[in-house]
Structure formats: C-alpha cells, structure tokens
Write a protein that binds this DNA or RNA. Sequence first.
DNA 1: AATTACATACCAACCGGTCGGTACCGAACA
DNA 2: TGTTCGGTACCGACCGGTTGGTATGTAATT
Lengths: 202, 202
Amino acid sequence: MARTRNSLETRTKLIEAARDLIRAKGYSATTVDDICHSAGVTKGGFFHHFESKDQLGVAAAEHFSAMAEQLFATAPYCALQDPRDRLFGYIDFRTAMFGYEIAQYTCLLGTMVQEAYSTHPNVREACAAGMTTHVEDLARDIEAAKQLYAPSASWTSESVGYFIQAVLQGAFIFAKAKQGPEVALESMMHLRRYLETLFYPI
Amino acid sequence: MARTRNSLETRTKLIEAARDLIRAKGYSATTVDDICHSAGVTKGGFFHHFESKDQLGVAAAEHFSAMAEQLFATAPYCALQDPRDRLFGYIDFRTAMFGYEIAQYTCLLGTMVQEAYSTHPNVREACAAGMTTHVEDLARDIEAAKQLYAPSASWTSESVGYFIQAVLQGAFIFAKAKQGPEVALESMMHLRRYLETLFYPI
DNA sequence: AATTACATACCAACCGGTCGGTACCGAACA
DNA sequence: TGTTCGGTACCGACCGGTTGGTATGTAATT
C-alpha cells in the first residue's frame, strides 16, 4: 500500500466514504468504524481529522453542498441564454440523473436531515444551509425567467425553488421505497408540466 | 402503576412509542430500550411481542398505514359529493396538518424507508406497501375527478397520487430542515395550484 | 395444570471516543 | 551535509457504556 500521507486527501477520503455510506444506510446506522474501514484509515486517523462523528456529518454536508454547487454551475444547460431554458435544463438534467444508481443521485442533505433534525442540531443546520444555498442559486434563474415570462405572477421565485426541491426529495423517497425510479420520473414529469404553466410564453 | 396485563394494549403501546420515537430520531437511533422505557414495558415484554426490532418496525409501518387509512377515510371532506372537491379537501386537510408539531404530521413511512431501504428489506417493503395503498386510495378520487373534469388527459391518476405524496414527503423534509412549516406550506400551495390546472372545469 | 404475559438478570458484540506511541516532514543549526 | 527538533499525520489497543437479543423466573389468566 502506497500510503501517501496527505492530510487533505485522507480527510476527503473519509468524507466521501461517509457520504456514500450515509446515503445507503443513513447517518445513525453508519458507524465511525464503517467509515474508517471504507476509507482505509484507522480510528486514530479519523479522530485526528474530526473531533466527533457529528463534525464529520457537518463536513460531509458542506462537502456535498460544494460538490452540488460546482456540478450545477458547470452543467451544459448553464450556457443557455434564456433563463427559462436554463430552468428546464436544470429539471431535465436532474430527471436524467434518475438513470444512475439510487445511492448516486439521492441527496445526502435530505437523507441526513430527516434523521438528524431534532437530535443533531449541527448536522441539521449544515443540511439546511446547503439546501437553502442551492435553492437560492436556482431561484436566480427562476426570478429572471419570471421577469420575462410571468412578471405579474403572485408567487415568489424562492417558493418555486423550494417546490422543485420538495418534489425532488419526495421523488428520492419513492425511488428508495419502490427500488426504482419509475414513480419518481413521473413526478418529475408533473413538476415540469407545472413549471410550464408558470412560465407561459407571452 | 396500574398493570393491566392486556396483551393487545401493551403491544399497541410499544408500537405507538416506536412511532413517536422513530419520527423524532429515526429508526436506527431509536433503541429497543428507548421504546421500552417510553412504553413502560421491560425488554422481556418487548421481545415477547416482537421477535426483533425489525419486526417492530414492520408492525409500526402497518399500524401507521392503518391509522392513516382510517384518518383519511373518515375525514370531513370525504362526505363531499364531487370527487374533485374531495381531492382538494384532502389537499387542504393535509395542508392544515402542518399547523401541528413536526413529529405529529410527518410520515413514519417516509422517514423509515429513507434509512431502511437498503439495509432492512422487511421494513422497506412494509413502508412501500403502506405508501402504495394510500396512493391507491387517493387515486380513486383522482380517477373519478378525471372522468368528470379531464377525461382525455394523458396523465394517469396514479401518477398524480404519487406526485402529491412526493410533494408531501419533500415538504416534511423542509419542515424538519427549516424547523418550521412555512416553506412546506408554500409547496402545498404550488401543489394545489397545479392540481387546479389538471382539473379545469369543463 | 397449562399457557400467556410479562419482569429480571444477563450476555457478547459493538458503539463513539481516548490515548500513548510512531513514522515522517520541513526548518534550524552546526 | 548531517543532525537535531518540534510538529503533523496516523496507528491500533483500549475504555466505559450501550446495543439487540436471550435465559429464566413468576404471577395472572384460561
């Protein structure tokens, strides 16, 4: 084993192992030993980088948020001129992700916050922050599209952003429950249909 | 302590304690000791009624499903003649529930299946079954409303039922993350608006 | 008398976290 | 150039407490 003794690399390996395990088993069921074994690090190494399991949860949420931000900031649809097209590009992009394995497209933040919201306040806060940031990013395109296609509509772009995320989170739950994306994909179709009614061409 | 030595009552107390604890802390973080303490039963009593924690999880899912079925089968809106009115009665009824405490209106099935989908197949199956049954019940009104108000629409009533549930599940996640129902309520409003577009009066 | 419905006491495995130690680094100094 | 040195990265044995689950006892019900 070529141990490279790279602090950042080890830390990242721990976080990514946590991300994958928590997405599959949940936060509580994922043990520190699990994470260490999966990352090829010992317990001593783990607690050198994180002072508690909770703090790793927070770090994982932040890491996930950063990854998502980067992913959706560099996706092909971002190059589109029309903000409405970018919004539907986002929807279609996320819909296409349901083609991968469940543990690859589900949201770490939504999974963690369900378990942690009342017992692990730091984790809850980190998840909420990540989700809020993502909605804010999304809401910028929604707002721009609103100015163009529905300037006098009564809804706020922020609430539409949250609605989109709610559908996604619910779709993830059904993908897990049904062990497949079929039902989730139909929900994404309904979501798209709704958004089309919001941004009717002038 | 008035020990009543009533088998069914003890079993129900265990299930309801599990329901409340799991909704607040998740399945894995809820221990058998927790449940026993909360229900006022010892561990011996617990394992007299359930042969494993998993089986309790299954029983809790079934209990929750039965309770929900009863709740939504006897709610005031069920008396309405028009299936479209019943559907919106359901939406408004569920929207109103966001006024209670988080742990009272969130869905045990959605919470459990997030954690259990890959590691506790029996629990996953019980959750999926309960959710499917609920959607089927709901889809009956949707189908009847479709016949009246949108007979030639291309969507299936089942998919609309799942969409409604997806929004609800997502709304629960945001209510937990945000520690309040505001964002969730806005999502319910968007959901209602969408359903209105589906069932436009003839 | 037999069965049911619990309580008590207990277990091995596992949990998050600690701790003393070690391998390795770059900088300072001779 | 070689040596020392303090700090960082990491190891792995260990700890007290907790976990799901069991073995056994006993009082009430049938």
